[in-house]
Write a protein that binds this DNA or RNA. Structure first.
Lengths: 286, 286
DNA sequence: TCGGATTACGTGCACCGTAATGATC
DNA sequence: GATCATTACGGTGCACGTAATCCGA
């Protein structure tokens, strides 16, 4: 058995060409490296180097050995990564969500259920979300369709309807409801990280000018202190959300109302069964 | 970087189930193994075991780690084998030959040319020989066809014609030549290790009873001390081979005469060019 | 004389084994 | 008490660094 540190040193020498440079890179002394290479030849029972006075270099066998050594070192690193990564995956739940509101509502419930685990989330939608769920990038996903897939366990979670939030004196403030076309030509404040809603805006509100805000605080400030309209939703209003001098008007469009579903892999069914049940009853209670 | 000896110990524990048994197998003490496993967890920064008082076992991460460790250890062994094997292949020439005589004649010439190398040979014929040459099992091959293949360098080497060797008083001793059918019903001594000639016997001399001898000395003894016929060849006779009370009669058959070719891979052309030339001139000189 | 490899020598750490301890059956 | 794991302790081998040496440009 040849220890990894020797292989690492051989690979470094193969890369650097001289013992001195390799030793420097390895943060060991030149004599130490010289001895190591000798030891390597010893343990293999094979010559790996041609030594001609002041110069040392790899022979054919040495070149092969160096290539194999490098591969072995890489695999060692890869192994460590996989172990650490796997361990972390056991102590964490990573959620991919297509929209921020259902994600925000889910997080505290998850934290209740899996108190000792790290909960992390990511806004992502479309094929990437589904693929990520299946490949294990995400343990849970919040979807906007009830995908039928025997690899997945999918359950209805909640619905959300978009509102607009406008100043009291805005021309739309008096409406009972609005259509997307009512916002034609408007300047409209839009927070950047809203998941798939962004694609809804791009598709159905082409004639509205969006002032996209990547920063949460800046966005909130602009909503509070300018006359531009912005989005809200029934779920946000249900949280007793109020705003001085602003009124909320529902958007009467099919594409402004979505039902969200929560999904995990079938193989994780046991782990999440109780949690899924708990979420279902919360939905029913509303 | 995790050293191999730790991985080996982890793999052994995974196999044995208890530290004590694994320690015994590894020829180290139980405390040493206990410490090693702790060190492994330390270096990975990850728990690999569940320790419940007198029992220790792998957790999920540990199982993954053990599997990866085993693979790493196997690869390390495999690497060593490949290096040693490659080194040996550089210092040795292995010949596959379809017949013993051309092989026997080639060996001393080869030894002259490559005095510092180990020359070894093997009797083998048909597809196995050709495949072995191409895959590197054999560095050189003695064939009985001039194969056309751009991967190979093939050159005419020598011819051999079979004789029979019979006692002076044998009924065939007076013939100028014999046919295979003349040996019908005969008992015939046959040395076992004669390469493709064996297949010639089986195909064209079905009605001759062969007394097959796996041992060289026994065969020679029987030829000298019994009245049974045996094979010889023009090449053997050319070596001043004589035998008290025996006469040699040529076999007049197409299938009793072969031309042999010597072959190497094209990529080895440089290495064997001079040697091939030398063989060619020797053939011409005869 | 400088740069690069090897040899010589002393040192300290890390791994080891023995022995003792803990813990469960 | 037997078995299995961990802790404690003392020893040793081995890989290291420093220093010296060798050798060729």
């Amino acid at each position: 058995m040849i220890e990894i540190y020797l292989l690492e040193q051989l690979a470094a020498f193969a890369k650097c060409g001289t013992l001195s440079k390799a030793a420097e890179e390895l943060l060991i002394s030149q004599p130490a490296l010289s001895r190591s290479m000798k030891k390597l030849e010893d343990e293999l029972g094979v010559k790996l180097f041609v030594r001609e006075n002041k110069k040392i270099s790899l022979n054919e066998t040495g070149k092969l050995a160096a290539a194999l050594a490098r591969s072995q070192v890489d695999q060692n690193r890869e192994m460590i990564n996989r172990i650490v990564e796997f361990d972390r995956s056991l102590r964490s739940i990573h959620i991919g969500a297509c929209a921020p509101q259902p994600m925000a509502e889910l997080m505290p419930i998850l934290q209740d259920y899996f108190g000792d685990m790290t909960i992390s989330s990511e806004l992502v939608y479309g094929g990437k979300l589904l693929k990520g769920l299946k490949t294990g990038v995400y343990h849970l996903a919040i979807l906007r369709e009830a995908i039928e897939d025997k690899e997945l366990l999918v359950q209805r979670y909640m619905s959300e309807s978009l509102y607009i939030c406008v100043p009291e004196d805005h021309r739309l403030a008096v409406c009972d409801s609005v259509k997307f076309t009512d916002l034609k030509g408007e300047r409209f404040l839009l927070y950047q990280h809203i998941g798939f809603w962004m694609s809804v805006c791009e598709e159905y509100m082409k004639d509205t000018t969006f002032l996209i805000q990547p920063d949460r605080d800046t966005f909130a400030d602009l909503v509070a202190n300018t006359g531009y309209p912005a989005f809200a939703s029934d779920r946000i209003l249900a949280e007793d959300y109020r705003m001085e001098g602003r009124v909320f008007v529902p958007i009467d469009e099919e594409k402004a109302r979505y039902t969200f579903y929560i999904a995990c892999r079938s193989e994780d069914r046991k782990k999440y069964a109780a949690f899924f049940n708990s979420v279902r009853s919360e939905v029913i209670s509303k």
